[in-house]
Protein backbone atom coordinates (compact mmCIF):
# COMPACT_ATOMS: atom_id res chain seq x y z
CA UNK A 1 0.00 0.00 0.00
CA UNK A 2 2.78 2.39 0.96
CA UNK A 3 4.60 2.16 -2.38
CA UNK A 4 1.56 3.56 -4.17
CA UNK A 5 2.00 6.83 -2.39
CA UNK A 6 5.75 7.30 -2.37
CA UNK A 7 7.67 9.11 -5.06
CA UNK A 8 11.21 7.80 -4.79
CA UNK A 9 13.27 10.57 -6.24
CA UNK A 10 12.66 14.06 -7.49
CA UNK A 11 14.64 15.65 -10.29
CA UNK A 12 14.83 19.10 -11.87
CA UNK A 13 12.21 19.32 -14.61
CA UNK A 14 9.66 17.10 -12.80
CA UNK A 15 6.12 18.45 -12.93
CA UNK A 16 2.77 17.82 -11.30
CA UNK A 17 -0.65 19.35 -11.47
CA UNK A 18 -3.98 19.36 -9.70
CA UNK A 19 -7.33 21.05 -10.11
CA UNK A 20 -9.97 22.13 -7.61
CA UNK A 21 -13.50 23.26 -8.35
CA UNK A 22 -14.63 25.51 -5.52
CA UNK A 23 -18.01 24.07 -4.55
CA UNK A 24 -20.69 26.22 -2.95
CA UNK A 25 -19.97 25.09 0.61
CA UNK A 26 -16.13 24.89 0.48
CA UNK A 27 -15.52 28.13 2.39
CA UNK A 28 -17.94 26.95 5.08
CA UNK A 29 -16.21 23.58 5.49
CA UNK A 30 -12.86 25.37 5.62
CA UNK A 31 -14.20 27.89 8.15
CA UNK A 32 -15.28 25.04 10.42
CA UNK A 33 -11.96 23.22 10.05
CA UNK A 34 -9.67 26.25 10.32
CA UNK A 35 -11.59 28.62 12.57
CA UNK A 36 -11.61 31.41 9.95
CA UNK A 37 -15.23 32.53 10.05
CA UNK A 38 -14.63 36.02 8.61
CA UNK A 39 -18.04 36.92 7.08
CA UNK A 40 -16.42 37.76 3.72
CA UNK A 41 -15.90 33.99 3.35
CA UNK A 42 -19.22 32.57 4.52
CA UNK A 43 -21.80 35.29 3.89
CA UNK A 44 -22.43 36.19 0.23
CA UNK A 45 -24.57 39.21 1.19
CA UNK A 46 -21.75 40.59 3.33
CA UNK A 47 -19.27 39.94 0.51
CA UNK A 48 -21.46 41.96 -1.88
CA UNK A 49 -21.81 44.76 0.65
CA UNK A 50 -18.03 45.19 0.90
CA UNK A 51 -17.58 45.14 -2.88
CA UNK A 52 -16.33 41.58 -3.40
CA UNK A 53 -19.36 40.55 -5.45
CA UNK A 54 -20.13 37.65 -3.08
CA UNK A 55 -18.30 35.35 -0.70
CA UNK A 56 -14.65 34.60 -1.42
CA UNK A 57 -12.64 31.54 -0.41
CA UNK A 58 -10.12 31.86 2.43
CA UNK A 59 -6.68 32.50 0.89
CA UNK A 60 -5.21 29.93 3.25
CA UNK A 61 -7.63 27.34 1.83
CA UNK A 62 -6.12 27.98 -1.62
CA UNK A 63 -2.66 27.60 -0.07
CA UNK A 64 -3.94 24.40 1.63
CA UNK A 65 -5.00 23.01 -1.77
CA UNK A 66 -1.60 23.98 -3.16
CA UNK A 67 0.38 22.32 -0.35
CA UNK A 68 -1.84 19.26 -0.69
CA UNK A 69 -1.07 19.08 -4.42
CA UNK A 70 2.61 18.96 -3.43
CA UNK A 71 2.17 16.28 -0.75
CA UNK A 72 -0.12 14.20 -2.98
CA UNK A 73 2.67 14.26 -5.56
CA UNK A 74 5.51 13.35 -3.17
CA UNK A 75 3.54 11.01 -0.88
CA UNK A 76 5.11 11.51 2.54
CA UNK A 77 3.96 14.96 3.76
CA UNK A 78 7.09 15.19 5.91
CA UNK A 79 9.06 15.86 2.72
CA UNK A 80 7.47 19.31 2.33
CA UNK A 81 9.83 21.65 4.19
CA UNK A 82 8.73 25.13 3.09
CA UNK A 83 5.94 26.81 1.20
CA UNK A 84 5.22 30.47 0.60
CA UNK A 85 2.88 32.59 -1.47
CA UNK A 86 1.40 36.00 -2.07
CA UNK A 87 -2.41 36.26 -2.20
CA UNK A 88 -3.09 38.11 -5.46
CA UNK A 89 -6.68 37.60 -6.58
CA UNK A 90 -9.74 36.49 -4.62
CA UNK A 91 -10.99 32.97 -5.35
CA UNK A 92 -14.77 33.01 -5.75
CA UNK A 93 -17.29 30.29 -5.14
CA UNK A 94 -17.69 28.35 -8.40
CA UNK A 95 -14.17 29.11 -9.61
CA UNK A 96 -11.91 26.30 -10.80
CA UNK A 97 -8.29 26.63 -9.80
CA UNK A 98 -5.42 24.86 -11.48
CA UNK A 99 -2.16 24.17 -9.67
CA UNK A 100 0.95 23.45 -11.73
CA UNK A 101 4.29 22.65 -10.12
CA UNK A 102 7.73 22.50 -11.69
CA UNK A 103 10.95 21.43 -9.97
CA UNK A 104 13.38 24.14 -11.06
CA UNK A 105 16.44 23.14 -9.11
CA UNK A 106 17.80 20.30 -7.00
CA UNK A 107 20.62 21.01 -4.57
CA UNK A 108 21.85 18.07 -2.47
CA UNK A 109 18.63 16.66 -0.95
CA UNK A 110 16.48 19.74 -1.46
CA UNK A 111 14.32 20.50 -4.49
CA UNK A 112 12.89 23.92 -5.25
CA UNK A 113 9.39 23.80 -6.70
CA UNK A 114 7.90 26.81 -8.45
CA UNK A 115 4.11 26.64 -8.52
CA UNK A 116 1.52 28.43 -10.63
CA UNK A 117 -1.99 28.74 -9.21
CA UNK A 118 -4.51 30.15 -11.67
CA UNK A 119 -8.27 30.47 -11.97
CA UNK A 120 -10.41 29.49 -14.97
CA UNK A 121 -9.69 32.86 -16.62
CA UNK A 122 -5.94 32.40 -16.37
CA UNK A 123 -5.60 34.90 -13.52
CA UNK A 124 -2.90 34.20 -10.94
CA UNK A 125 -4.75 33.79 -7.64
CA UNK A 126 -1.48 33.16 -5.84
CA UNK A 127 1.87 34.53 -6.97
CA UNK A 128 5.44 34.04 -5.83
CA UNK A 129 4.48 30.48 -4.88
CA UNK A 130 7.48 28.38 -4.03
CA UNK A 131 8.01 25.17 -2.08
CA UNK A 132 11.02 23.21 -0.90
CA UNK A 133 10.87 19.42 -0.78
CA UNK A 134 13.18 16.61 0.28
CA UNK A 135 14.12 14.88 -2.95
CA UNK A 136 14.87 11.34 -1.69
Amino acid sequence: MKAMYEKNSIDAGDTFNAQQKIDKYRAIYYAGASGDFNPIHIDAEFGKMVGLGGAILQGLCTLGFTADAVTTWIGDPGRLKKIKCRFSLPVKIGDTITIEGLVTEVHEDTGTVVIKVINQNGGDVLTNVQAEVVTK
Binding site: M1, Y5, Q20, R26, Y29, Y30, G32, A33, S34, C61, G64, F65, D68, T71, T72, D76, P77
Partner: peptide, 12 residues
Protein backbone atom coordinates in the same frame (compact mmCIF):
# COMPACT_ATOMS: atom_id res chain seq x y z
CA UNK B 1 -11.74 17.29 9.45
CA UNK B 2 -9.08 19.72 8.23
CA UNK B 3 -7.77 17.25 5.62
CA UNK B 4 -11.30 16.79 4.29
CA UNK B 5 -11.85 20.56 4.17
CA UNK B 6 -8.89 20.88 1.78
CA UNK B 7 -10.28 17.84 -0.13
CA UNK B 8 -7.18 15.76 0.54
CA UNK B 9 -7.16 12.02 -0.08
CA UNK B 10 -3.75 11.52 1.51
CA UNK B 11 -3.86 8.35 3.69
CA UNK B 12 -1.24 9.79 6.07
Amino acid sequence: EFAKAIKSNNPY
